[in-house]
Amino acid sequence: MIETTTGKKRILSLDVFRGLTIAAMILVNTAGDGRYVYAPLQHSKWNGCTPTDLVFPFFLFIVGVSIVYALESKKADFDNHKNIISGALRRMLILIGLGLFIALFYRFDFQHLRFPGVLQRIGIVYFICTLIYLKTRQRTRDWLAGIILVSYYVVLTYVPVPDGNAPNLEPESNLAAWVDRAIFTTDHIYAHTELWDPEGLLSTIPAIVTTLFGIRIGEFLKRTDISANKICGNLALTGVVGIILGLLVGLIFPINKQLWTSSYVLYAAGLCTVGLTAAYWLIDVKGYKKYTWVFVVFGANAISAYVVSEIVPGMLNWISVHHEGTKIGGMKLIYDSVFKPYFSPYNASLLFAIWFVLLIWVLMYILYRKKIFIKV
């Protein structure tokens, strides 16, 4: 159990929360059969928010908290800012490179290479938020977050789309979709839509605010002038306020992950705050740490776990067999042989996803036991 004040010690709950988020990210990305997925494990078709829609903002929120824990003690050394920014730029480029590598790993086709992506967004948001954190105070960051959220609402709902469409929030004809097509072209955006990208350029701007919220919560968690119990109370209240604000703003600007709307930012940040606060209170304040290592295995090598989870399916699919004139890859072969014959379609699909999470966990556990922590 830690002291009643936060001190400078790294909080275990942050790694646990990160690990849970990565586990959830892998789970929802690896259904055995995409036709049979329980509703909470699917993204909303457009407006609305499922538990799956919260996974990505949870990770970006944690990035913000981690920035504070990594840089707070270094921020005052202005002479070192250049090195910090250089390191952040390097990490951004590595993350972008990894995202492009994963896209090419499955389809070595530069003509149709998807430029946006999950890792690309993480890298860009991390770099920008590192700059903002180093060069601004919290009050400035709060104003900046508010300006971005209001401006994003105004731009999407009042600015006409240059292709002749009136301002709208429909999937293929909104301004963010037009920007993706204009800058990346349809050959280099999400192949399943071809007309817009869920990690597109314009929607990355409000995603920055998700990480700025994480920075705000990280700074509050590091306070040493009040007790840990008071920190938990204040953060829980902050989270509830964020949820309520998100729902209220959603009445005029619908909660939508694909567009990363302002209401979605507020709603998700509120839930992130409540979730992290609960984990902090249970683990770091009350000292319930017995099985936390199970999740720290993922949290300690979060990006590595995600990258491996994206690559392993492709590697397994190198192993293939021919069945009734059709070539079956390794992933489908395992699903068809081990899960599909013995469970209902929905349960087979879910159990396959759980099995895959456990497979990646074992690979990360090997690194964890050998104390290998790959920092991007």
Rank of each mutant, 00 (worst) to 15 (best):
residue 6 T to Q: 14
residue 12 L to D: 14
residue 17 F to Q: 06
residue 19 G to Y: 04
residue 21 T to Y: 03
residue 27 L to Q: 02
residue 30 T to S: 10
residue 31 A to D: 01
residue 65 V to S: 04
residue 66 S to W: 06
residue 69 Y to H: 14
residue 71 L to Y: 14
residue 78 F to E: 12
residue 84 I to N: 02
residue 86 S to N: 09
residue 92 M to V: 08
residue 93 L to P: 09
residue 106 Y to N: 13
residue 110 F to L: 15
residue 117 G to H: 10
residue 119 L to I: 08
residue 124 I to Y: 01
residue 124 I to L: 11
residue 125 V to C: 13
residue 128 I to C: 05
residue 131 L to E: 05
residue 145 A to N: 00
residue 147 I to W: 00
residue 150 V to M: 04
residue 154 V to I: 14
residue 154 V to N: 05
residue 160 P to I: 09
residue 161 V to I: 04
residue 162 P to T: 10
residue 164 G to M: 12
residue 170 E to R: 11
residue 172 E to P: 09
residue 175 L to P: 03
residue 191 A to V: 08
residue 194 E to Y: 05
residue 201 L to H: 08
residue 205 I to P: 04
residue 206 P to Y: 00
residue 211 T to C: 14
residue 216 R to C: 14
residue 219 E to Q: 14
residue 221 L to F: 15
residue 223 R to M: 11
residue 226 I to M: 11
residue 230 K to D: 13
residue 235 L to R: 05
residue 238 T to G: 06
residue 239 G to E: 07
residue 247 L to T: 06
residue 257 K to N: 03
residue 261 T to F: 12
residue 266 L to I: 01
residue 266 L to G: 06
residue 269 A to Y: 04
residue 269 A to P: 04
residue 272 C to S: 15
residue 272 C to V: 07
residue 273 T to M: 05
residue 274 V to K: 09
residue 276 L to Q: 10
residue 277 T to E: 02
residue 277 T to A: 06
residue 278 A to W: 05
residue 281 W to K: 12
residue 282 L to S: 15
residue 283 I to S: 07
residue 285 V to W: 00
residue 311 I to E: 05
residue 314 G to D: 13
residue 320 S to C: 08
residue 322 H to V: 14
residue 329 G to F: 12
residue 344 S to G: 05
residue 350 L to I: 03
residue 354 I to V: 15
residue 356 F to E: 04
residue 358 L to W: 03
residue 363 L to E: 09
residue 364 M to V: 07
residue 366 I to A: 15
